[in-house]
């Protein structure tokens, strides 16, 4: 564990807490994409199947369970919890996440899994687990898209929603620094280029948002996106 990864994880946790608080306190889900959070839930469920098979550390296991439970409760609140669910604007949350996110990521994951020969020599179970892990890496990189597109529609960005996206983006940017650090200071550290590629892609998707977020913070005014 290095300082970059710890800060990245904390940024991730913080973004989830900000969103949970916003939903609980404001009892309002407007401007929040249910589809993004369903994608994140799928990411966590497919990546953390190793909860049952490999023990890394208490920290890892607790965080994994916390991510799954908190994201599940966000999905639950937006979908089913009254009165929050009545404020969710389904008509605006239109990104076709099955066709343009889940489907392509499943195809890409299958292709890279077999081309890389990653699972050869392992049991079928491990192969499926590895395949799901690769799928989750691809899917995480673009899971924020429905939320960013929804934001473009509203233009005026609420403070808490803006903070949520800012911390969510910072998390993966800090992970990139963590990978560089580990490459230099951890002998025997094994590279997963798919994860690196997706981590950079994920961070780039936030770049535009970061720019306008910083500008609005500097001006100290309201945060709105350009047309």
């Amino acid at each position: 564990m290095n300082v970059f990864r710890l800060c990245g994880d904390m940024s991730h946790v913080f973004s989830i807490v900000v969103l949970l608080l916003r939903l609980r306190v404001a009892k309002n889900a407007s401007g929040i994409s249910l589809r993004t959070h369903e994608l994140f839930l799928l990411v966590f469920l497919t990546r953390y199947t190793d909860l049952f098979t490999t023990y890394y550390s208490l920290y890892n296991s607790c965080m994994k369970i916390a991510y799954i439970l908190s994201t599940a409760s966000i999905v639950y609140m937006i979908r089913l919890s009254d009165p929050i669910c009545t404020t969710y604007d389904k008509a605006q949350d239109t990104f076709r996440h099955w066709a343009f996110a889940v489907g392509p990521c499943a195809v890409l994951a299958t292709l890279t899994h077999f081309i890389s020969g990653e699972g050869s020599g392992y049991s079928l179970f491990v192969n499926i687990q590895e395949l799901l892990w690769t799928f989750s890496i691809y899917l995480e990189s673009i899971a924020i898209l429905p939320q960013l597109i929804l934001l473009q529609r509203y233009r005026e960005v609420e403070n808490l929603t803006g903070n949520y996206i800012f911390f969510m983006g910072s998390y993966r940017a800090l992970y990139i620094l963590n990978w560089i650090y580990r490459t230099y200071y951890e002998p025997g550290y094994r590279h997963h280029y798919v994860a690196y590629f997706c981590g950079v892609l994920q961070t780039l998707l936030y770049a535009d948002f970061f720019y306008y977020y910083m500008q609005s913070k500097r001006r100290g005014g309201r945060f709105s996106l350009p047309t």
Partner: peptide, 10 residues
Amino acid sequence: VDAKSTKDEL
């Protein structure tokens, strides 16, 4: 399954 890679991260 390899430890010491991005797989021991979150």
